[in-house]
Amino acid sequence: MEKQDQLLMKKQNKNLVLEIIRNQSPISRMEIAKVIGMSPTSITRIVNELHIQGYVRETELVTSGVGRKAALLDVCDDVLYTIGIELDKLIIKIGIVNYVGEIVAWKSVEREAFEDYNETLDKVNLNLKVLIDINRIPTEKIIGIAVGLPGLIDYKKGVVMVSDQLKWKNVNLADDLKQLTQFDVIVDNELKMKIVAENFKGMTKDSRNAVLVGIGSGIGSAIILNGEIYRGETNNAGEIGHTVIDPTGNVCHCGKVGCLATYISEGAILTDSRKVKEIGSIDDVFDSYRNGESWAINILDRTSTYIALAISNILCLYNPEVIILSGNTIEKLPEIKEAIEQKCELYIWEPIKESVKIVYSQLSDRGVVLGAAIQAQNLLLNIE
């Protein structure tokens, strides 16, 4: 038992040193020793092991006062790769990401709205292999895949319980995709993947308490509390789309009445728009809004109101430092930001208003893929 404890501690120290080099590079051995509180001799031994394994390298020498120059350390970006995948109703996005979080290969392909489950998996597998081959990524350096998609996910088992957008129910996505690709697979809700990316290199990098809200084909959120993803009992924390805002309101596909999603989602906006005008897509609604058509202005004014109310409720529940707005609606209609901010001024409780920053995701259409790949690194990387 004592030997096992020693091995575990050695492994933890090794991971800690590597994480510090990754996050604070370039950094010297002496600086690492000060941060961790370990002896320089122990740090040197760990760094030497990481160097032999190909994880770290010396980058340059610096002088700090008198004495000899200190070597600075950095991680090797090509020591390993992970694959991030986003599945949505009409699109599949695949990215190969290196150890420092750079997307080194990217491919997006169309998905049919009612595409069969196996068709989608075959399409993912085929395009992934093409991407690996074209970019000459050594398969032995790929440690795994992570998939982000809308829906209720049992992330421990890799099972999609329900995804309304994909029309999937109780599918063993992690096992099925692993069988096809031969890589380990992690599956989670798309927004939980995206907030990992925001926390790694986005708008919440220096925040320990943050909420990401996604507004598009549906509406949902992901929550980080004390630096960790808050999942709730069944990984459904943040599913604000099914909070009831009007008990006499619209009927939701979930069977309830008056869910937030029935007022904010693209589908809800399209349904109301088609009562007034023959509309082909959500882009047509946004164009009508920009052209000053009163019906579109009224519908999107109501949308901005409900978004502001949702933000207000989230802030009262979780009191985060930062709330990030993202998703198709925000990206395609940036003009709505001003309306949302004006209504937030009206609805957010004053004591909270001063302590929170409302910002917008800068990760564009690659946030879920990047976050998924980073989460694969976090969960699958095993350094002995």
Rank of each mutant, 00 (worst) to 15 (best):
Q4M: 13
D5T: 06
N13H: 06
N15I: 13
I20T: 04
R22K: 13
S28N: 07
P40Q: 03
I43D: 08
H51A: 10
V56A: 05
V56E: 11
S64G: 01
G65C: 07
G67L: 11
K69V: 07
L73A: 12
L73I: 15
D74T: 10
V75Y: 01
V75E: 07
Y81E: 12
D88L: 01
N98Y: 07
I103R: 04
V104T: 12
V109P: 00
A113Q: 05
E119Y: 00
L121G: 07
I134G: 00
N135M: 02
K141S: 13
I143D: 10
I143E: 12
G151T: 09
I153G: 01
D154R: 04
K156N: 15
K157A: 15
G158H: 08
K167R: 13
A174S: 15
A174T: 10
D176Y: 00
K178I: 03
Q179P: 00
T181M: 10
D184F: 03
V187M: 02
K194D: 13
F200C: 05
T204N: 11
D206T: 12
S217L: 12
G218Q: 05
S221K: 03
A237F: 05
G241L: 02
D246I: 10
G249C: 09
N250Q: 14
V257W: 09
L270S: 00
S273G: 10
S294P: 00
W295R: 05
R302Q: 14
T303G: 04
S304G: 04
T305I: 11
Y306D: 05
S326N: 13
P334T: 07
E338F: 01
E345V: 07
V359H: 01
Y360L: 09
D365R: 04
G367I: 05
V368W: 03
V369G: 04
L379H: 07
E384I: 05
